[in-house]
Amino acid sequence: MKYLAIPLIALASPALAGSVDIVGNVEAKCVIQTDKSGVYGNPTASTLSTSPSDGGVLPVVRFDVAIADYYTANITHPSSFSSSPALTDSVAWTGSTSVSKTSDAGMSGYDSAKIVYDNTTVFDLTVAGSTWFSTSSTATYAASKPFTGGTYTAVVQAECIAK
């Protein structure tokens, strides 16, 4: 019986208890995710628009930054089609980008502080967390001509640039 007790004592010894460390590292990083893919509505023959009132869907991108004040978000709305049927005339483009949702109340000033140049809107990501940006895009065919039937694709460029 005493021989049986020896291994039991050994098993109960704290020297045999294993421990595994979990090490984490929070570093500056930016993650871009597509929250919602956009769709062009076709409210009139000569217009393609992502506006919900025109039957479109606004594309939404989400930016996550782990540490504040390391990145800027630069979002560019389209100024041409990346693919389309053959068009014989020019297309007029308009668009804009704004904050649609935030994870932190401190991001409420992003829209008023944004800088717009050409087709690009720049947001300074001064608060850590998630920000959702929605981009509107409208293409109008010259002289109100009807767009040729087919599939039209344009690209919204979302950039996260280290400062």
């Binding site: 871009i32 893919s37 769709v39 992502t50 694709t153 919204v156 979302a158």
Partner: peptide, 9 residues
């Protein structure tokens, strides 16, 4: 017909 989202980090 849709706008695509291209990302650059």
């Amino acid at each position: 017909s849709s706008p695509l989202i291209s990302s650059r980090i």
